[in-house]
């Protein structure tokens, strides 16, 4: 249930054209970290991967932490989430929150 709701929330904002933050001339750490996510969670097309643009900041942090400590089951995200420190997860969530 939880997963379905999250996925639906992603779909709701996924149909619009996405632009990165306009101050992008200064690419900061959060932006660079987050571009790794876009490889699967594209911000240009929609597919069957959850769209993370507009994803609530606190929810992104809590879900990444849940993947990291394996309290949320998954396939690949558990392996990837363990590659990021708590600070990096916060930076990624902050950056996602700037995307529209």
């Amino acid at each position: 249930m939880k997963r379905s709701r999250i996925f639906a929330a992603g779909i709701a904002v996924s149909m619009m054209t996405i632009a990165l933050a306009p101050q992008a001339a200064e690419v900061e750490r959060g932006a660079l970290l987050t571009t790794s996510c876009f490889s699967c969670h594209s911000i240009d097309v929609t597919g069957n991967m959850p769209n993370l643009v507009g994803y609530p900041r606190d929810l992104l942090v809590s879900q990444m932490q849940a993947f990291k400590d394996d309290s949320r089951p998954g396939t690949i995200m558990n392996r990837l989430a363990k590659g990021y420190s708590d600070e990096e997860i916060d930076q990624m969530a902050d950056y996602f929150a700037t995307l529209q």
């Binding site: 876009f38 490889s39 699967c40 969670h41 594209s42 911000i43 240009d44 097309v45 597919g47 069957n48 991967m49 396939t75 690949i76």
Partner: peptide, 15 residues
């Protein structure tokens, strides 16, 4: 994972 394989393809080619 087979479903995500297709999702990965669509995602990365979109990126």
């Amino acid at each position: 994972e087979a479903i995500y394989t297709k999702g990965w393809y669509d995602g990365i080619t979109g990126d």
